[in-house]
Simulated scan of single mutants.
Amino acid sequence: MALTYLATIRLKPEHFGAACQAVAGIVARTRMEAGCERFDPHPAADGSAILYIYERWADRAAFEFHHAQPYTRAVFKSYEEWLAGPVALTELADGLE
């Protein structure tokens, strides 16, 4: 069963650029992972220091595999200094069609 999430990452403004660069640096590798169907980071349109990541995984194993990768763990390690609050991970239901 596929899993779809919207990650809301609230950052300290002084670290927003570095966080965006760090996430951009793992996009290609993440998209090549088995089970990754979508991994699309987006900055907030209002210019606030919020980064959203829309992601879809084939199953929980693919989602957990992604979070176990050294490049993903390195971004999370950097987040320890950069975050303005906890990352919110919202699970989305299948689209309305």
Score class of each variant (00 low, 15 high):
Glu37Arg: 08
Gly95Ile: 11
Tyr54Lys: 09
Val75Asn: 01
Ala2Arg: 15
Lys77Asp: 14
Ala2Lys: 15
Thr30Gln: 02
Ser78Glu: 14
Ala58Trp: 03
Leu83Lys: 04
His67Asp: 01
Ile50Glu: 10
Val87Gln: 01
Asp94Pro: 10
Thr4Val: 12
Ala61Thr: 13
Glu97His: 13
Thr8Phe: 00
Arg38Tyr: 01
Asp59Gln: 04
Leu92Phe: 09
His67Leu: 07
Gly17Lys: 15
Phe65Trp: 11
Phe65Leu: 12
Ala28Asp: 13
Leu3Asp: 11
Val87Cys: 00
Ile26Asn: 07
Leu92Thr: 11
Ile26Gly: 08
Glu81Val: 05
Gln69Gly: 01
Trp57Ser: 05
Gly17Ile: 14
Gln21Pro: 03
Phe65His: 14
Leu89Cys: 05
Phe76Ala: 07
Ala58Phe: 07
Glu33His: 05
Ala7Arg: 02
Ser78Tyr: 08
Gln21Phe: 06
Trp82Ile: 08
Thr90Ala: 10
Arg29Gln: 10
Ser48Trp: 06
Ile53Gly: 00
Pro41Gln: 04
Phe63Ile: 05
Thr90Glu: 10
Ala62Val: 05
Ala61Glu: 12
Gly35Asn: 11
Ile26Trp: 06
His67Met: 07
Ala74Ser: 12
Asp46His: 06
Ala34Lys: 13
Leu83Asn: 01
His66Asp: 02
Val75Phe: 01
Ala19Cys: 09
Glu14Gly: 11
Glu64Arg: 02
Ala49Asp: 05
Val75Glu: 01
Trp82Gly: 03
Ala28Lys: 13
Val75Ala: 00
Ala58Asp: 08
Asp46Gln: 09
Gly25Leu: 09
Gln69Arg: 07
Ile53Met: 02
Ala68Cys: 06
Arg56Met: 02
Gly35Glu: 11
Arg38Gln: 08
Gly35Val: 12
Pro70Gly: 06
Ala68Thr: 06
Arg10Ala: 10
Thr72Glu: 00
Cys20Val: 15
Arg10His: 09
